[in-house]
Each structure stands twice: as C-alpha cells, then as structure tokens.
Design a protein around this nucleic acid. Structure first.
Lengths: 388, 388
DNA sequence: AACGTATTCGCAAACGTTCCCGATAGTTTT
DNA sequence: AAAACTATCGGGAACGTTTGCGAATACGTT
C-alpha cells in the first residue's frame, strides 16, 4: 500500500504522472503531491498479484494450433475435424479451462442476462414473480439479475443505469410508487433493448405490459360482498399514484354503483399501507359511530390487520363485519376465519413476462404496445360468509 | 436468414469456409453443404444490424483528445485539468454515453457481482435470505446474481460453472440435498474466488460457513414440549443427507434422553417433506394404536399439515396433541391454534453472509475455515400450550 | 540561463473472445 | 487433366475499457 508522506493516509492515493524513475502520487484527502522511487513502489504494490487463468490461447499454444481453431472446437463448429476437436476438449479439461463469459459478452455485445427491477421484496408477490421468471429464463439459458428500487424513484434511476452499463439483453420492471417521469426508460428504446412493464405499469409509455385485471377483480370482490348482504362497504385502498390502486378503486366504485349502494367518501381511504398505517386506518373505520359492515382492502396484510382489530374489539366476523383482501398471501388461508381474497397468478405473471421478453430479444421491432392481462380468481373463505 | 437449399431449414445453419466470392454453409440438421453468392448473403443477413453505442472513443474524437484522457476524466483521475474534465463530462452527456461495464469487467477481471445459489424458492426462507444479502450488497455497490439449483446436484454443478464463467467476485451457496461431492466447489479455491456456505452446509470442505444453531434449537423445542407435560414425542424429520436434519434429529434425541424419555424408533421419521409426504407421514403417526402425544416437525409446513390432519380427525390441539414446527413461516402465526415454532433469523443470515463475502473479496487469504452461528428463538403459541 | 518541479495529456499494450476472409490440401466431377 | 468441391485450419481485426510509461509544456527558483 502506498502511504501519503504528509498525512499518512492509505485510502484515496492516486497515480499522477511519472518523472525520471520516480512515480508521482496525489493524496486526494489532503491534496498533496509526492514522489516515490519506482522500485519501492513495485515492492509496495506487488502483493496484488493477478493469478493467471487458463485461456483459449493457452490451449492453442500447448496444442500448436491457432486460437480460432480452439474457439471453434469448443463451440462444436462444423469446420473442425473430430480428432482436433477431441484434442482441444482434452487439453481444455487438462488445463482446467473455464470460458471467460466477460470476453464473450464484450465481443458479442450480448450477455444472455435479463434484468429485473422490483420495488420491494417484503410481501410474497414479487418473490413469486421472480420464481416464475427465473424458471423460464434459466430454462432458456439466460441469467436473471435482480435489483430492488426500494420504492424510490432515485434508486430506480440508478438501477436502470446499472442495467444499461451491464448490457442486459432485456429488462423487466415494476415501477416505484414515486415514478411519474419515464425518461430513464425511454433510453432503452434508443438502445434497442426490449423492456416490459409488469404489475406496476403506467400509461405514459409505449411498451409491452403484463398486468392482472385489477378492475374486474375489485368489482368481483365488492359484488361478492354485496350479494352476501353487506350494505355499507368501506374501501381501504393503496396510494393513487399506482395504477393498480386506481383500478381497484374504480372496480369498487363500479360495483357499488351497479347495485345502487351509496359510496360514503369518509369510508374510502387511500394511502401507502404499512402495517402501522393499516392499523390506524382500520381502527378509524371500526370506531366510526356508524361503522361499515364490510371492508374491501387493497391487499391481504391490511385485511388481516382489520380482522385482528375486529377480534380485539369483539366485532364478529363475518356476521358483523365482512372482510375481503387482495393477493391471497399464504397466511390468509390459515387465519380464523379464513380471509376471502383475490388470488393473483404471480408465478404465471413471472413466466409470461419472461417468455415475452425472450421473444423480444431476438426481434428487431421491440416497441410492441401490447398488454397482456392475466386473470385472477375470487377465493371465498369465512371472512365474508354471512349467509351461511 | 439463410435457408438450407436442401431441407429449407433456417435453424442450425453455420458458416463453413469461403471460396471465390461464395460463402459456404453447413446445414447442421441435414448435414448438407451449400454455397451462396456473397452479395446474396449480405442481403440476407443485413437485417441484423448492430446499432452503434457511443463509446469513450467517440467522446475523444469529438473533443480532439485521447481516449485515455476521457477515461481518466470520467473517473475523476487527478491528472486531468478541471476544464477538460468538464468538457468531457459535457460531451458525454451530450452524446448520451453509457459506460460499458463489460469492457471494464474484462480489463479489470472483476465484475462487482456476487453470485448466490439456492436450492429452491418456494418456502419463504431463501427469499428472505436474499432480501438481507441484497440489501448489504447493493449498499456496497455490488450486484447480486441469483441461481436456483432446484435441489439437483447436476444443476448445482452447471450453476457453479456459469458463475465461474461470469467471473463473479464471490459466491454464496446453500447446498442441494443431493450434494455429497464437492469438487465443483474446490475450483473456487484454485481461482482465488471467495466462497461461503450458508444454511445447507457440509463438513467436508474448508470454507466459511453461516448457520443457525440447529442442535440447540431442536433441543429447545423438544424440551419445551416435555416441560409442558408431553411424554411420547414423535419427530417428523428432514432427509438425513442434510446436515440441518441431522442436527435437529440430534437435538431431539438429546432432549429426550436428558429427560429420560424413551425414543420409539417407529415414531422418528426422516425424509424429504413435500406437502404430500407430510400428509402421509402425519396420518401414519396419528393412526398409530398408541399415537404420540406430541410431534416435533422439521419445518412449519409439515407441522401445519399435522394440525390440519388432527383437526380432520377431531384430535384436540394442544390437549391431545402438541405440535412444534421450525422456521416461523408467516402462516404459522395465524393458524388456529398458533403454531409453536423456532424463528430463524433469515434476513440476518443474508446480511451476515453478504458482509462476510465483501470482506473476503478484498483479501488474499480467502480460505478462512470459520463458522458463524446465528441464534434462533423459540416462539411459543397455542399448539403446545397444554398447561394453560 | 539553466534547471528542477508541476501539471496535463497521449501511445499503445493488455483483457479473452469471436469471426471474417481467406489458404491449402485432398477428393470428386466433368 | 482441369475444374469444382470438400474439409480443415490460421491470421488478425474487433469489442470498449484501463493503465503503465512517459512526453510535452508551463512555472518557479537559483
């Protein structure tokens, strides 16, 4: 390690020119230039020795053939005789050759890697999408690189930049709830890199999209409550910056209107639903003088929070309060009473998105503005079964 | 696209030599050689035009400086004057320059990527580990590439090869239940690539390992049952090829022996626990003439299956049957009665593993044969609360 | 005026592949 | 026997960076 002769620092030393047998350095922290005799430098730096990896050239040399021959032999090219191919493979095994994908990627400007950016990992939705996509991609010989935007627009931008720098062959992205500018996605069109939005999509940009029928699902859920005799149905919704939240709200309203129920504004709440927030909103709703007799929540964790609050308050479910969630998390089947909810085809979403991007990476025309809508399913359990 | 003149195929056509203005091809499927006039070839192939990406050289040319200057300017090297640096940055932005990480990786032979191989995604354990590792790695400027071995030894081998080919800077791996040969891991030592085993570890190889205290956890769980008055405790264990299963079995036996309980061999079952298997084994145990009064299961999904079977058979939990699981899946808190279980620090495991590998990638000596043991926690719920 | 030092930049060699454009025999075909 | 074709190999550019080694100029200092 090179040490600054003034401040003694080791971090932040950088090369700065060269003069007659002495190397010059700049200590960035204290902004001080100094020189070191060359031989001392090499002594200090030598510990970072690079180990040799056997390359195609090593094989070529030991066999006395050209490296193009070796390359072709390793790839089963037609132009190579069986004998030399075998010889190449043998010495490759002997020398413990491992191909260098980086060099391959550089020359082909193609990485066999699909990128995926998701806003979060914490609810099981995105991991399940990943499972589906991962399965399809690996089967097709592609790698999957996952990044997490953490619901932050800035992080999403830096993620897309990293994806570009790493030259992914395609990108699957589910947007942040903050995202309302899409310049960082337009770049992909210029570059000819296919891009698919899934789940958290937007209307402002012309790319393939994979979603579920949020509107119909919400409609179905609320209509189910109405059919089961619930009258005053509240909605605990997500942030309206998300299209999914908007659609589910729209479905809620449509169902209410179809059946002539009045929508009471103070019983329609929108916002980012952390566990804590869900509890606050839930308590607010159940403490109302004329409290709702059913709640349609935008996700299962909020719905479960509602059930827990109701139990604490001694409100009987489903008789005094019906609850419907959205997503069918694993715990929803086991809570008592079971939570009626909308099952989303998460793994199928991952599969469909992955299959689509695989089609697009081999196509020139990537700007297909199509939309694939996956179908959900209403899972009826105890939390809404008043009529039983 | 080039079409075979014999069979008409398009797939599997490859170049094979060149002769006087004609290019020769071989149709792999029907093994037929044919030639095509060069100009026709270029016409047929031209659609796959490579788009130009602006490089460092483009910036250098438009500015009339050398590419080394541009490179240094982009990296804030000391040798560059503020004016030229600014000029470079401006034209970089103007030309919409995106650095090519592939070229960087090649020349530095370093990718800033950590690989992770997990056997499966389906239970929430591994996704949670991923969350923890992902957080630490991205914060340190590293990418995470995830592969899934799908509990197959062969797939694990091909995964490690792909990781090597992609030159990950470090590898985190949780072994398959089939894995009992470790040659594919030894390669990493030769290459100087740090490797950490987590959760599914083995004793045969000398690398850092991150695990939980399975033995003590199982001991704790079984002792808890005994203290609560259960006498004839069965164990529904995992496959003994896994060290974790062995350890948990050992903990079970130790606790039983300490308290002078006899272990009845026909009530100790080992095997890979799919949902279906769990049901079969569970039914077997509960149908025994003298059935156990408690069951310690190796994971939560098996334990929950037991609870469901007991409910079907009208066996009262916890009075007639105590149940304890392992992992604390989300649904375990919500099933009725709540499942007593061992909580594993999954995200912490991911974090610890990631932090460790980050230390190792900058070290020469990577073969530290240490072992980090994370502590679990017994979560007592209704399924074992006979004494209440 | 001569010399030492600061500052800023360029040349060119890597990094490990792929693949275009052939060359050179040997083998058929005409 | 010439021509055409088959089969197998090599030379070397290209992919887009980084960086070691130094050159060139500018600025001080005796």
């Amino acid at each position: 390690m090179i040490k600054c002769v003034k401040c003694g620092q080791v971090e932040g030393i950088m090369k700065a020119g060269y003069v007659r047998g002495k190397q010059r350095f700049l200590c960035k922290p204290c902004n001080y230039y100094f020189t070191i005799q060359e031989k001392d430098v090499s002594a200090a730096v030598q510990q970072k020795r690079k180990r040799h990896q056997t390359t195609i050239i090593d094989i070529a040399k030991t066999l006395g053939v050209s490296n193009s021959t070796v390359s072709r032999a390793l790839h089963g090219h037609a132009d190579i005789s069986p004998e030399t191919r075998q010889a190449v493979l043998d010495t490759a095994a002997l020398l413990d050759y491992q191909p260098n994908q980086l060099a391959y990627n550089l020359v082909k400007s193609r990485t066999n890697t699909i990128g995926m950016i998701v806003p979060e990992f914490h609810n099981p939705f995105f991991p399940n999408v990943i499972i589906g996509a991962h399965e399809v991609l690996t089967k097709a010989g592609y790698n999957l690189t996952i990044m997490q935007s953490n619901e932050s627009y800035q992080v999403e931008i830096s993620n897309t930049k990293a994806m570009l720098a790493n030259r992914v062959d395609g990108l699957l992205i589910s947007l942040t709830q903050e995202t309302n500018n899409f310049d960082h996605l337009e770049v992909f069109e210029k570059r000819g890199i296919p891009l698919i939005l899934f789940n958290r999509v937007c209307e402002q940009i012309n790319v393939p999209k994979v979603v579920v029928n949020d509107f119909e699902s919400a409609f179905m859920a609320v209509e189910h409550l109405i059919v089961n005799g619930y009258e005053r149905i509240a909605h605990l919704g997500g942030p309206l910056t998300l299209l999914v939240s908007q659609e589910r709200l729209r479905g809620y309203k449509a169902a209410m209107e179809k059946h002539g129920k009045t929508i009471e504004d103070h019983m329609v709440i929108q916002g980012m639903l952390s566990q804590q927030k869900a509890r606050i909103y839930g308590q607010y709703l159940l403490d109302l003088a004329e409290r709702p007799d059913a709640i349609f929540a935008v996700n299962d964790s909020a719905a479960i929070e509602i059930i827990l609050i109701a139990k604490e308050k001694g409100i009987a479910i489903p008789d005094e309060l019906g609850v419907v969630g959205f997503s069918d998390n694993p715990e929803s089947a086991y809570i008592g009473p079971g939570l009626t909810t909308i099952r989303q085809p998460t793994m199928e979403m991952g599969q469909a998105t992955a299959e689509w991007i695989l089609q697009l990476v081999d196509t020139e025309e990537i700007r297909i503005s199509e939309r694939k809508v996956l179908r959900t399913e209403l899972i009826v359990r105890g939390s809404s079964a008043r009529n039983r």
